[in-house]
Design a binder for these strands. Structure first.
Length: 332
DNA sequence: AAGGAACTCAACCGCCAGCCC
DNA sequence: AGGGCTGGCGGTTGAGTTCCT
């Protein structure tokens, strides 16, 4: 048995909306609101339309303060940054661009922006990150068997061109031919990856042999996406990555920095435990405790000007032990 | 000028989470 | 507790438009 239709398909009009229908819908909603029930609305408003169609028409076209037309460079940048970070979550991206709808942004990305980026950086595989898995069995499979990594991560990256050892690259594909992570001096091991998984974040570490290609492609992407600002080596904090995302314009006040600062001590201890020698031990090295201020998902992200769900940590002062690796986590 | 290809974008489809009964 | 319903969302479609040869 199939799913019950949301409306009587035979008796609803489909296709483009006429000006008369627009006027009817607009007038009704301005007068009575949606009444909290889109399915019942068309009948009340005298429209032969599916409730969902009404909702879409209102949200994407008729509601006040909708902006159509050219996207600005700033909007492009925001879309690219967010897409690289959270993927095709258009509604979240739209929430950062007042007046833009998720549909508009999705169309813009699919028809223009993506092509623009490919034209500028043809060798760059520009893929969104995979949404975090809710399947903890899947997640833990990585933790327990790094050599059989078969999951698609395709995630953002950002870098510090002044000091690549502080740059974060996270990327992957099914065939393990793309970088998992770029280390400045990669060991001659095949890919080893380490995933950090918990309820609110996941991330991973890894090495890859073909580091020159990684470097080249990721350099381009890093420049493209996030500029080349430095991040602090003494502070391991969200702020440093946000600065990069904002092309150096990021100005977090001290209090905010404190709020999101990761304890250097925790970080060092953890890395010492797991980065000795050329091998990364397959073990989670970040826990919820490290990210507590960030785990309240998207509302937090919005409040923080959209980018704080991305966390980057690096410290070259302890390079003897672990400059070969960086770490990353993504929060949803 | 014509017609085929490529592009755009409004609208639809179907899935899913959350709410309510 | 669980089944049905709804809103919200992302992916996809296809008619209309623009571009190219």
């Amino acid at each position: 048995m199939g799913r019950a239709p949301c409306c009587d398909k035979a008796n609803v009009k489909k296709g483009p909306w006429s000006p008369e229908e627009d006027a009817k819908l607009k007038e009704f909603i301005e007068k009575y609101g949606t009444g909290g029930n889109w399915i019942a609305l068309p009948q009340k408003a005298g429209l032969k339309r599916c409730g969902k169609s009404c909702r879409l028409r209102w949200l994407n076209y008729l509601r006040p303060n909708i902006r159509h037309g050219e996207f600005s460079d700033d909007e492009d940048r925001i879309i690219c940054t967010l897409y690289a970070t959270i993927g095709s979550r258009w509604s979240v991206i739209a929430a950062q661009l007042p007046g833009r709808t998720d549909n508009d942004i999705k169309n813009y990305w699919n028809t223009k922006l993506k092509k623009k980026l490919f034209t500028m950086f043809p060798s760059m595989p520009f893929q969104p990150p995979l949404p975090p898995s809710n399947d903890h069995h899947t997640s833990h499979r990585f933790l327990n068997n790094s050599s059989s990594f078969n999951y698609t991560f395709s995630t953002p990256n950002f870098m510090n061109l002044d000091n690549p050892s502080q740059s974060l690259f996270v990327h992957d594909d099914h065939n393990l031919q793309s970088p998992i992570l770029f280390p400045p001096q990669p060991p001659s091991t095949n890919l080893i990856c380490n995933n950090i998984v918990n309820d609110n974040c996941y991330g991973y570490l890894g090495f890859q042999d073909d580091h020159q290609n990684i470097c080249n492609s990721q350099m381009q992407q890093g420049m493209l996406m996030f500029g080349s600002t430095s991040c602090s080596s003494s502070e391991v904090e969200v702020g440093s990555c946000m600065g990069q995302i904002h092309h150096g314009n990021y100005n977090k006040d001290h209090e905010e920095k404190q709020k999101y600062q990761i304890k250097q001590e925790d970080y060092q201890t953890t890395l010492h435990d797991h980065f000795l020698g050329d091998q990364i031990q397959t073990q989670s090295f970040m826990t919820k405790n490290h990210i507590t201020p960030l785990q309240n998902d998207l509302e937090e992200v919005k409040q923080l000007n959209f980018s704080s769900h991305l966390f980057h940590a690096g410290d070259e002062n302890n390079a003897t032990h672990y400059q070969k690796g960086m770490c990353s986590s993504y929060y949803y």
